[in-house]
Design a protein around this nucleic acid. Structure first.
Lengths: 227, 227
DNA sequence: CGGCCTCTTGACGCCTCCCTGACGCGCGGC
DNA sequence: GCCGCGCGTCAGGGAGGCGTCAAGAGGCCG
């Protein structure tokens, strides 16, 4: 199940896209202006964004830059303008694809699939998605955590935090980076969030939560996941 | 410098592409049929492939599948056929983008840049900057220091100081420069800070802290990190 | 509408880190 | 030989960061 963010100020276009996407088992969020789009992109972490360039409140290219400032999520631009310059500008700003209106729904969906597909993590045989420690097991793909032979339930925020840490296994991840990746680009100083959620992760996964061996604090710098 | 493989059976198209690509500092290989394309893709490992679907010897979609069998290199399809079905088929076979002829060169190049850009590595664990001496190892990216088989814990200020010294390995770094880089531009004379923190670094990293071999004092001038 | 699950926020005690001052040592100049 | 200067070392105190708990706010589902 993939999540899509649709951004367009024409309600009928949004409606058509939402219907078609939901029929194909996508989760869909919708925004009709740039500010909402940026907010939803940060809050919902879509797997792909369909973005109309002609928005009422801000330039579409600025929206692209705003998103690219903190994530590489695929952006599929939808636009009525067909000039080469517009396309080049949007693509160089960070868009992944550019489709001109009117568009064929089948083609758009195929381009969407292509964008999602190539954004998938490189599933090289050697680097399994399952990470094991002596205390617990994490399967990032299946979104499952095991400990002592039973499943551990994690909330969405806990998962997100765990994911960032595990993907950077062995490396220090700064507080700012964690906050921005999990809570969105407008966060960066709210380290109290981190303290609370790190405590949750430790309580749920560490054998001895008060003496963490895998979720290590580096005072003043950040956190590190050690296998 | 990126390598491009151009596949098309029309010589004038190939020529136009090759000229434009070379002018933009791409390395270019060219093929005029599917078999050659597959061979060159394997032999030269291009960073991106521009593929015309209308080839004399085999179906373009088969070429895509042949390439996708072993690599995720971006494939930008070029085709005279504009029907939606063709596009969907090519994209679902593994193409990354689909441009119909006649095409604008600027747009094609922008799409090429987009394809190359998103294929760039995100930040593999391999790209860490590791500095080794006979006594200890420092990984600047992971913020990890190693000595005698164990991890060494460094505080943020210690890391910062170490980083400046290591980045200027072999060169003398003046006290003023160190103070300003680590403590901020308003510092410059507080050399007592340096004495304290250099002592910490030596105590934590040098084999014989009282006779430093890697963190050398240049009296009256500054400090130098020697590998 | 009510209950449940998250997320957010605040308070409190503990621990770490940074700064500071004191002292010892070696070196060069007076 | 004495003194001044720069550097290395050590220990203590203050400030801020961190872990923990608990309560309130908000959204989702029955």
């Amino acid at each position: 199940m993939n999540r899509v963010l649709v951004v367009d100020d024409e309600p009928q276009i949004v409606r058509a896209l939402v219907i078609n996407l939901k029929a194909r088992k996508y989760e869909v969020d919708a925004a009709s202006d740039g500010a909402t789009a940026l907010r939803l992109a940060a809050a919902r972490h879509p797997d792909v964004i369909v973005l109309d360039l002609g928005l009422p409140d801000m330039d579409g290219v600025e929206v692209i830059r705003g998103i690219r400032g903190w994530t590489r999520v695929p952006i599929l631009v939808l636009s009525a303008r067909q000039t080469s310059d517009e396309k080049v500008e949007a693509l160089d700003a960070g868009a992944d694809d550019y489709v001109t209106k009117p568009f064929g729904m089948d083609e758009l969906l195929a381009r969407l699939r292509a964008a999602v597909r190539r954004a998938e993590p490189v599933g090289r045989p050697e680097d399994s998605v399952v990470v094991e420690t002596d205390a617990f097991t994490v399967d990032l793909a299946a979104k499952k955590a095991h400990r002592d032979g039973r499943d551990v339930r994690l909330t969405p925020t806990e998962w997100h935090l765990l994911e960032v840490l595990v993907r950077n296994a062995g490396r220090l991840v700064s507080q700012k980076q964690l906050l921005q990746e999990v809570w969105g680009p407008s966060y960066g100083t709210e380290s109290n969030y981190l303290r609370v959620y790190m405590a949750q992760l430790r309580r749920k996964l560490e054998a001895d939560p008060s003496h963490p061996r895998h979720f290590v604090t580096e005072p003043g710098m950040g956190y590190r996941f050690e296998r």
